[in-house]
Design a protein around this nucleic acid. Structure first.
Lengths: 133, 133
DNA sequence: CGGGATCCTCACAGATACTG
DNA sequence: CAGTATCTGTGAGGATCCCG
């Protein structure tokens, strides 16, 4: 289990760089990356369709996210040379693996959300009491 | 499987807010959050010790990350009232669950890193060829 | 040694306008 | 419809000082 060595994920980040594993992880867990993976896991989408499905994402960010994930080999882009342009996005095998893991994390978050919020309440109460007393 | 509805993760984010699940996910997968969880999964750490272990993290960001994770109930903070101060950090049960999932994602990233980099090379070559010809 | 308060900055997110 | 190019702000993240 190589990843048990935290150093591997931390070293070699001088100069603004970052270890390559972290980069992939960042892409997959990025704000829109997560939503793209979850959406495309259901079915393929056209660009505008995906944009509406996700909601609240700008064209620029969706384009950027899709390009990053396509470059990483997680998303397949199928551009049909027609007028008007039609581009379909879907997951590759690699993308489906990633989306499954992201989904695990997302589902865990949903399951434990209550406990997390409870912990927050407790934390805030202690802090509030400490600052007032 | 509630999370299959992407809309749930996207709606209600007007005003800069974000659905609460996403917030927890952000904390857990944040730049330093990941490293903190992976490190504390091995053993407990003192503040400075953890800072050296992770490497490249500023005091401010480590403090902030630890506070966020503590507030979410993932990290336990044990401050001993001695001079000089001694504070030990460890994972809670919830934190261990989270770290396990993060570790899954991290390990997947390591396993597939080769394929991802290969995909990138292919992607870049096509783009380079397209822009030059 | 741990961490709060403050200041700075730059990378990234969003809006807009334009192209094929 | 699916992008690209450009401008701008915002805030995450880093450096520094200070205190218990």
């Amino acid at each position: 289990m190589v990843v048990s060595k935290v150093r591997q994920w931390t070293t070699a980040m001088e100069g603004g760089g970052m270890c390559p594993q972290r980069l992939v992880l960042e892409h997959v867990t990025s704000r829109w990356g997560v939503l793209v993976l979850l959406a495309l896991d259901e079915r393929s989408f056209r660009f505008g369709e995906l944009r509406r499905e996700i909601g609240g994402v700008s064209e620029k960010m969706l384009t950027q996210t899709l390009q990053t994930l396509e470059r990483d080999g997680l998303v397949h882009r199928d551009a049909k040379p027609v007028i008007p342009p039609r581009v379909d996005y879907s997951l590759t095998g690699l993308g489906r693996e990633a989306s499954a893991l992201v989904r695990s994390l997302a589902e865990w978050t949903e399951r434990r959300l209550g406990e997390v919020e409870q912990a927050r309440t407790g934390y805030d109460e202690i802090r509030a009491a400490a600052s007032s007393g």
